[in-house]
Amino acid sequence: MENKVNLTLNGRAVSARQGMTILEVARENGIDIPTLCYLEDFSPMGACRLCVVEVEGSRTLVGSCHTPVTEGMVVHTHSPKVLAARKILVELLLASHPDSCLVCDKANICELRRIAADLEVGLPRFHARKHYYPVEDENPHIIRDMSKCILCRRCVIACKSAGNGSMFSVAYRGFESKVVFGCDQLVDEAAVCPDFDGCIALCPSGALRKPVKIGEERAEKALIIKG
C-alpha cells in the first residue's frame, strides 16, 4: 500500500503520495506554479528557480520541482514573499535578454513573456550585458539564436539524438554559460536530427525556432496576454 503524506498547501489540508514533489502536489490540486526548466518526464534540474515556494521553518525558499513533500509540511506557493522573488528572477532573466520581442518570431508563444506578464513585470529594473551571438540559420530544420537563450537547459536534457547523449551541452560557466553544439560551433546544414521539432517546442524563449516559409500556416497557439 502507498504511504500517504499530509501537508498544508496554501492553508488547505491536502494529502499526497510519498515521493511526490511539492510541484506535483500543487499541480494535482489545481495550483499553478510557474516553471521554466522543469520538464514532466525528466528528472528536475532546479536551475531556473522560478518554482520556488515558501515552506514554513525553512531558512530559504525551496525549489518545488525537486523538493519532496514531507509529513506536516506547510507550503505557501503564492505568498507575497514568493511572488516578489519570482518577479525578480524573471527580471534577472530579462536583464540580459534582447529587447526584440516586437519582432521575435516566438513573441506570441513565448513562455518567458507569458510568465513575465503574469507576474506583472514592468519596465526593467536591472541591467546586464547582452550576449551577442550570431543567429544560426543555416540548417533547414532549426534556427538557433543563443542571444535569447535563458539557459533553462530543456533542449539539453530532452535531446537524445546524438546517440549516446544530447546534441547540446552547457559550456563555459557563470554569466558566460552557453548552450553549445559541438565545440561551440554553429548548427550548420550538416547537423541532422530526426526530431528538431521536439526541442523547438520545448524552448520557452525565442532561442530555438522553426524556419517558417512565407505563407505557411503556424501550428502554435498564439499567446493572449492580459492587461
Binding site: 546517440g163 549516446n164 547540446f168 563555459y172 553549445v180 559541438g182 561551440d184
Partner: peptide
Amino acid sequence: LEIPINEVYGVASF
C-alpha cells in the same frame, strides 16, 4: 567514453 563531443567541450570550457 561514448559521450557526445559537446559534453567534453562543456567540461573542458568550465
